[in-house]
């Protein structure tokens, strides 16, 4: 359970997060939807503990973000992997050593599913393959909470379905996934609940199928027509 109370994050005079209150139940798969600059990445970083709130509170299973939750939370960063000088297989082996919850079978299944040539240097992989490699590093853990920051960003349209299928395959009931994106249509069927962000705040939040019923629209249409149109 993630509890967020009166959360504010200010960078100088800009409010990246402007008073957010959220409860996220265990086992929910959440789409965190919004344009660039709406506060999605900042919110994920605050939950994980990469940065500290200006004011307000976050509790993850009763613990504070940071060191206390690293063993149960996996984070997929948007920035490109920096380990270009390693071979993919060596990077995976080295990285897996940090996590007691590493699941070798999931690692193998994901490598096969994404068709990653692990004998190659990271620097020699395409951008799409590097994103997939990053997903292997994130999703091979048996973590309780997965925070995925823009896993579809920079992925060409033809490969997006492959990425979302891989994420769906790795997802296990009972795990909590928060998947941030500004590309909604390719991922919205994964989201049980969709949280739309605008200017550092939650604009619309609800069970995706209930929102479909209420608006008679897809999450993508709500995003484009009702919030930012």
């Amino acid at each position: 359970m993630i509890k967020i109370k009166n959360l504010v994050k200010r960078y100088n005079d800009i409010y990246a997060i402007n008073n957010i209150n959220l409860d996220i139940e265990d086992g929910s798969f959440i789409g965190l939807v919004g344009p660039n600059g709406s506060g999605k990445t900042t919110l994920l970083k605050l939950i994980f503990g990469y940065c500290r709130p200006t004011s307000g509170e976050i509790e993850v299973d009763g613990k504070h973000p940071g060191v206390e939750i690293k063993s149960t939370t996996a984070f997929y960063p948007e920035y490109d992997s920096t380990y270009h000088w390693m071979k993919a297989k060596d990077l995976i082996k080295w990285y897996s050593g940090f996590f007691p919850d590493w699941n070798k079978e999931k690692e193998k299944n994901l490598i096969d599913f994404f068709n990653i040539p692990t004998h190659r240097y990271v620097a020699h992989l395409s951008k799409g393959l590097r994103a997939k490699l990053k997903l292997v590093l994130t999703l091979s853990r048996d973590a309780k909470i997965f925070l995925l920051d823009e896993p579809l960003s920079g992925i060409d349209p033809a490969s997006r379905a492959n990425i979302t299928s891989g994420i769906l395959k790795a997802y296990r009931e009972g795990q909590t996934f928060i998947f941030s994106t500004h590309i909604v249509t390719d991922a919205e069927m994964l989201f049980e609940r969709t949280i739309f962000m605008k200017d550092g705040n939650v604009a619309i939040d609800g069970e995706s199928d209930a929102l479909r019923e209420k608006y008679g629209k897809s999450m993508d249409q709500i995003f484009k027509e009702d919030l930012y149109g």
Binding site: F29, A161, E173, L190, D209
Partner: peptide, 14 residues
């Protein structure tokens, strides 16, 4: 069925 349709398993369970 969730993987066949590409939807969240909890939606199928519902």
């Amino acid at each position: 069925l969730a993987e066949e349709l590409g939807v969240n398993p909890n939606t199928v369970a519902r």
